[in-house]
């Protein structure tokens, strides 16, 4: 059990973080809190991806030292460098999550201009009064 915990604990951490984000998105009534929950949710996915790229042992960042020139393919020990692909994917995903947050904030500004509040209950009340 302890071995299982030690070898997988970071996957569990991402699940916990993700569920915190999901809870904030679904249960909180304040729209900004929902947005923050969304960011936590996306960060959890990013954390998961980055942890795929990790290798234990004698490992360094995926930047090759100078001196490797043409034809020295054998000299590079693959196990010596982190897996670069998840990092690349997450650079893209981070940008996407920032862009989504930016769009969501712009929409929140529109909502605030219209209703003068960002509490979902109050907005629904205003809508109901306008409807009747």
């Amino acid at each position: 059990m302890l071995e299982l915990l030690l070898s997988k604990y970071n996957y569990w951490l991402y699940v916990i973080l993700m569920m915190i984000g999901l809870y904030a998105m679904l249960a909180k009534r304040n729209l900004v809190k929902k947005l923050i929950g969304m960011n936590i949710f996306q960060t959890a996915v990013i954390l998961f991806y980055v942890s795929i790229g990790v290798k234990t042992g004698d490992v360094t960042v995926p930047i090759l030292p100078y001196g490797h020139h043409h034809g020295h393919e054998q000299a590079i020990n693959v196990a010596h460098y982190l897996n670069p692909l998840p990092h690349v994917l997450m650079l893209t995903a981070i940008v996407v999550s920032i862009a989504t947050a930016g769009v969501a904030l712009a929409v929140l500004i529109l909502i605030y201009r219209r209703y003068r509040t960002l509490e979902e209950d109050e907005i629904l009340k205003i809508n109901q009064e306008a409807g009747t």
Partner: peptide, 25 residues
């Protein structure tokens, strides 16, 4: 899932070694 940080996990042996080996070339 493969253990965290396992250098022999599929993610680290299928596609990514090509990048590490061929990047300079």
């Amino acid at each position: 899932m493969p253990n965290w940080g396992d250098p022999q996990s599929p993610a680290s042996v299928h596609v990514s070694p090509y990048y590490i080996k061929r990047s300079i070339i």
